[in-house]
Amino acid sequence: MKEIKKLGIMGGTFNPIHIGHLAMAEEIRKRFNLNKVLFVPTGNPPHKKIDSLASTEDRYMMTILATISNKDFLVSDIEIKRKGTSYTIDTIKQLREEYTESEIYFITGADAILEIETWKNTQELLNICNFIATTRPRYDVEELLSRIKKLEEKYERKISLLSIVPLDISSTDIRNRLKGGKTIKYMVPDSVIDYINKRNIYK
Rank of each mutant, 00 (worst) to 15 (best):
T13A: 13
M62Q: 07
G180C: 13
I107H: 10
E117I: 15
Q123M: 10
Y60E: 09
R29G: 12
A23S: 08
R177F: 06
Y186L: 14
K149F: 12
I78Y: 00
P16W: 01
S160D: 08
D77N: 12
L145D: 13
T108Y: 00
F73I: 05
N33I: 04
R136N: 05
L145S: 11
R29L: 09
T13V: 12
L38Q: 11
F131W: 02
H18G: 05
A66P: 09
K83D: 02
K81T: 05
R96S: 05
I92K: 02
A25I: 15
L162H: 01
I193L: 08
S160G: 10
I92M: 06
D194E: 11
P16N: 09
E57K: 02
P46K: 12
P46R: 10
P166Q: 11
P46T: 04
K83C: 02
L126K: 08
D58F: 11
R157S: 13
K49V: 15
H21Q: 07
K179W: 03
D173N: 15
S191M: 04
L114T: 09
P41D: 06
S52A: 10
D72Q: 03
K182T: 02
V75A: 10
L145Y: 14
F73H: 15
S69M: 03
K182E: 02
E142S: 14
I92D: 00
N127W: 06
T56C: 09
K6G: 13
